[in-house]
């Protein structure tokens, strides 16, 4: 049986990817970020998942505004890297798992989550920066990745509660797959940040700390946070945190927090990283 053993919450700030790609990780600005992720990288190397379900959002790269799926599951053999405006990141092509992805789609739709099926798409920093942070810069990514793209670009994003419920359905779907596989679910984006308008640069460490605390202590409180509260308290782009709730929903009732890191800044964002193991 396939099993979801853990979840990883992490920011996906594009400047972090650029720092790696341009050899700046030892600079004083970036050094604390990469040092902070070192234990998570070690955890990842030890855990060696067969598959990552990567919950992320596209940033008007795979999807222009012609079509904006709320929940889209990547079912392709592989996903090439998007040119977001400065050339594609020099990272390996992302290998998918079409058979398992097809099973997830079937299970989720019959479980009443109406997924969009994507058989061809490019992936952007939302997916590749978390891989870089947790896996470093290998010649090939160490495991297969099933992308789950969530619309957080056009308001409204799906609610935190809906994301959490979809996570629960993903757990059911994974556990009904016969092959013995170790699966880790990533929830990416956030934490507090605003990258637009005169209010750009907003951060809210108190909001972020409470969010990190309650992922293990009281996820039900987090699922009740209304969209306006993310926008007003934690910045226009902090709505990405609903994707962490999707990850949390996939871990079952009980989790143990095994690692946490928090740092300001990476470009305009508060960076957060948490590892939660299912118990």
């Amino acid at each position: 049986m396939a099993r979801i053993v853990a979840g990883v919450g992490t920011s996906h700030t594009p400047a972090i990817g650029a720092a790696v790609d341009n050899g700046k990780t030892d600079q004083p600005y970036w050094q604390p970020v990469f040092k902070g992720y070192e234990p998570a990288r070690q955890w990842m190397a030890k855990t060696r998942p067969d598959v990552i379900v990567m919950v992320y959002n596209d940033h008007v790269n795979a999807f222009d505004l012609k079509m904006i799926p709320t929940f889209a599951l990547g079912c392709a053999e592989e996903f090439t890297i998007a040119d977001e405006g400065w050339g594609p990141r020099p990272v390996p092509v992302v290998k998918g798992y079409p058979e398992l992805a097809a099973h997830l789609v079937q299970s989720l739709v019959l479980d009443e989550f109406d997924m969009t099926i994507v058989n061809e798409m490019q992936v952007d920093h939302g997916l590749t920066v978390p891989l870089t942070l947790l896996c470093g810069a290998p010649a090939e990514w160490p495991c297969r990745v099933i992308p789950l793209a969530v619309n957080v670009v056009q308001y409204p994003a799906p609610t935190g509660r809906r994301c959490y419920q979809l996570g629960q359905a993903i757990r059911r779907a994974v556990e009904s797959w016969e092959e013995d596989l170790t699966v880790v679910v990533f929830g990416t984006g956030g934490m507090s940040h605003q990258i637009q308008g005169p209010r750009a640069g907003l951060t809210n460490p108190a909001f972020d700390k409470a969010f990190l605390d309650d992922l293990s202590r009281d996820p039900q409180r987090l699922t009740g946070i209304p969209p306006i509260e993310y926008l007003r308290e934690a910045g226009a782009e902090a709505i990405e945190l609903v994707m962490w709730l999707l990850m949390r929903g996939a871990l079952g009732a009980k989790v143990e927090e095994v690692y946490r890191f928090y740092h300001i800044p990476a470009s305009s964002t508060a960076v957060g990283n948490i590892i939660l193991e299912s118990r």
């Binding site: 209010r199 907003l202 951060t203 809210n204 007003r232 800044p265």
Partner: peptide
């Protein structure tokens, strides 16, 4: 100025809600 603001922890939501 912007980079310095971020290095000092970013913009507080106080007064910006």
């Amino acid at each position: 100025e912007y980079v310095d603001m971020m290095l000092q922890g970013g913009r507080s939501p106080e007064g910006w809600r």
